[in-house]
Amino acid sequence: MEITTKNLAYTYQANTPFEHRAIYDINVSIASNSYTAIIGHTGSGKSTLLQHLNGLLQPTAGEIQIGDTIISSEKKQKKLREIRRRVGIVFQFPEHQLFEETVEKDICFGPMNFGVPMEEAKKKAKEVILQVGLSEDILEKSPFDLSGGQMRRVAIAGVLAMNPNVLVLDEPTAGLDPRGRTEIMTMFDKLRKEQGISIVLVTHSMEDASLYADHIIVMHKGTVYKQGTPHDIFSNPKELIDLGLDVPETVRFQLKLEEKIGKRIADPSLSLQDLVKNIQHFFERGNGL
């Protein structure tokens, strides 16, 4: 399912003295089975943009097309149910949304809201709990007896259980330990490759953005500053650094090394393997120090 925005803008509390324009002039598109990363400073409007992707917020100007449905600033939209199911959003700190007595019930909550029968929802719960890297016996526990990391995974499972075509994630790894981070990130990657789910990821980790995404959107002060492949985005690392954003550590390392030896090694390396290979090639080409 494809999502496209056209001059999308959103103003919080429009027409009051508290009026605040959070995003404007947003033109982005999220292709089927793609992996999009949204990066940008805190307050740049990432979360606001996300809430348009399943119609939680209605644009105050411009429009957004989700599949066949167009949501514009003008008219009130009615058929949001199907969109809500097909675009699953996992918010920042999703563990705050858990409320049922058992993990199983909480995971079944989403699908059952969309009319899936209980038995089927339970089957789905078993399936997704394994996907998020937990064991089946956790289903009978109370979500409030779990650790923070486990709660996070249960919350993600709750959204996965709705069978979305697009999975939108707002900083899903914030506050997790390094191993948990890698596990969760690998899981999203697998979901896309094995089930064809599109992923939209908001992240502060440039490493994650460069490693997993095929399209990166850089938000700055409420609008899109730049977008393109990780290669496009990180090909000019100084620009991002000037914006106050980070770049992947491999890119940073290469930049420092190039500054030190006063020569260009190669295009920015987006992963450790790339970096090693690029440096090897560089020296093999006879560039001694």
């Binding site: 939680l56 918010f91 705050h96 949304q97 909550f109 989403g110 809201n113 959204v159």
Partner: peptide
């Protein structure tokens, strides 16, 4: 704010 956040999270899970 908290109410707004939870409201949206549950709406995203299909609550009307």
């Amino acid at each position: 704010d908290e109410t707004d956040k939870i409201l949206k999270a549950q709406m995203a899970r299909g609550v009307n």
